[in-house]
């Protein structure tokens, strides 16, 4: 308890002394800002409720789907090997579509193009379970730098969205998560907004949800019209957040209040 409180205190000092971009400050997972109870919930797989989605994803991985009657496993084999590190590369450039695609978009593309099955709905149990399962295979691995040159302009677009003031409260993502992390909004500490624990189990939601669901909550919070699920703006934001989190380990499934 004392550990994370003093960490926050340091954060406050830093934030007061220097309101520059996050790159110049220590990168801290959102886990550093939650209570010890929530932290131990995430740490123990036998009590982390997000593991129920990992388990469900593991079953779906083996289930034949669509007219092809192929399962994910028919092509990709053991996810433990084939999906290791894959989530670190997303959002990635999709040559076929000529634009970037995020992990759940990739899973749905696989369904429609390869399994000949209908796409799964955003925030559906199945899509969340599969995405959580695939991302979980990268748990503990650090986010690498983005090297694909085709993504440069998208990262820039994501960064400008991150810095743009929006909504009736006229706040940008950066106003809270770059400039005021470690301080409090109401009773909640403001984290640095890294995407590395998603999909994650939020106690408020009482279920697992995607990064886009969280981003929509933030946008509604500042009284802005949220982007639609799967919109190019969200993919750009996700990509910017991912490269901003470079070096942090994947935690999926994370647990947050």
């Amino acid at each position: 308890m004392r550990g994370w409180l003093s960490l926050l205190a340091i954060g406050l000092l830093l934030a007061a002394a220097d309101s520059n971009a996050i790159e110049e400050q220590p990168k801290l997972s959102g886990l550093e800002f939650v209570s010890p109870e929530t932290r131990s919930l995430q740490a123990d797989d036998a009590s982390n409720p997000g593991m129920l989605w990992v388990l469900r994803g593991e079953q779906l991985w083996q289930e034949p789907a669509g007219r092809s009657q192929a399962s994910c496993a028919s092509c990709h084999g053991e996810a433990r090997q084939s999906m290791r590190g894959v989530a670190l590369r997303y959002p990635a450039f999709d040559a076929g579509a000529g634009q970037p695609i995020d992990l759940k978009g990739r899973i749905n593309r696989c369904r429609t193009d390869n399994q000949d099955a209908p796409a799964l709905e955003h925030e559906s149990e199945e899509l969340l379970a599969l995405t959580t399962y695939v991302a979980h295979q990268s748990r503990g691995m650090s986010v690498p730098p983005v090297e694909d040159e085709r993504l440069r302009s998208v990262i820039e677009q994501g960064e400008s969205l991150f810095r743009e003031r929006i909504g009736q409260l006229d706040l940008s993502c950066a106003a809270c998560h770059d400039d005021r992390w470690g301080q409090r909004l109401g009773s909640s500490p403001i984290p640095q907004a890294h995407p590395t624990a998603y999909p994650l189990y939020r106690l408020e939601w009482q279920t697992v949800g995607s990064l886009q669901r969280r981003l929509r909550n933030c946008m509604i919070g500042v009284r802005a019209e949220p982007f639609a699920y799967g919109s190019p703006e969200f993919i750009a934001l996700e990509l910017y957040l991912m490269q901003r989190a470079e070096g942090l380990p994947v935690e999926t499934p994370g647990v947050r209040p």
């Binding site: 009590s47 469900r56 009482q206």
Partner: peptide
């Protein structure tokens, strides 16, 4: 023994 089940309650 720890037991958990997916259920919305």
């Amino acid at each position: 023994i720890k037991a958990m089940i997916a259920h919305p309650m």
